[in-house]
Computed example of a mutant assay.
Amino acid sequence: MCRNIKPLFNYEPAVTEDEIRAASLQFVRKISGFTEPSKANEAAFQLAIHEVAQAAQKLMDSLVTHAEPRNREVEAQRAKERNAIRFGTKED
């Protein structure tokens, strides 16, 4: 899985269109192998981002949970702690 794509479901505040588009861009970059497509592939690349974003938004709108919403700051701190353990770095 692409490490740059973050979970988007069940956060307070809810996921934004920009976050969904960013995740869609990362997904399309990953599966296409392009960071920036050539001019010949630009239209297909942009269409794929748009369609992935639409599918992701539809998914986010249809998911249901009874769990408490996650807090972005708490999740970011947990990620820092995991990275410190994984890479042997100290937190500031």
Rank of each mutant, 00 (worst) to 15 (best):
I5W: 02
D61T: 09
T35I: 09
V15M: 03
Q46Y: 04
E42R: 15
L59P: 00
V64P: 00
F9P: 02
M60P: 00
E91T: 11
A48P: 04
E68R: 13
D18V: 05
E75R: 07
E75T: 10
S24A: 15
A79I: 12
V28R: 01
N71G: 01
K80M: 11
M1N: 07
P7K: 09
V64N: 01
D92K: 06
Q54Y: 07
A48K: 02
F27D: 00
C2P: 14
I31S: 01
R29P: 04
E42C: 03
A14G: 04
R82G: 00
T65I: 06
H66K: 12
I5V: 15
P7Y: 04
V74G: 00
E51P: 01
E81Y: 02
I85D: 09
F45A: 03
L25C: 05
R21A: 06
S32F: 11
A48D: 10
L8R: 01
A22N: 06
F9L: 07
E68Q: 13
S32E: 05
R29A: 02
A67Y: 08
G33H: 08
V28E: 02
S24E: 03
K6A: 08
D92Q: 06
E19T: 05
I5T: 06
H50D: 12
P37K: 06
R21K: 13
R86I: 05
P7T: 05
S32M: 09
P37C: 11
Q46I: 04
L63N: 00
A53D: 04
E36C: 13
Q54S: 09
E81C: 01
P37A: 08
K30E: 12
A44P: 01
A56H: 00
D18I: 04
R70W: 09
A23H: 01
Q46A: 13
V52F: 09
R82C: 03
R21T: 11
A67R: 05
M1Y: 09
F87W: 15
E91I: 15
A14F: 04
R72S: 14
E91R: 11
S24T: 06
T65N: 02
I49Q: 06
S38W: 03
A44V: 09
G33V: 10
C2W: 13
Q26F: 12
A84Q: 07
A14C: 06
Q26R: 13
F9Y: 13
I31E: 09
I85A: 12
I5M: 08
T89D: 07
M60S: 00
A53E: 08
S62C: 06
P13K: 05
A84D: 12
A53C: 06
L25M: 15
Q46W: 01
K80F: 12
E12P: 00
A48R: 02
A22S: 10
E17Y: 02
I20G: 01
F9W: 08
V15E: 01
G88L: 03
G33L: 09
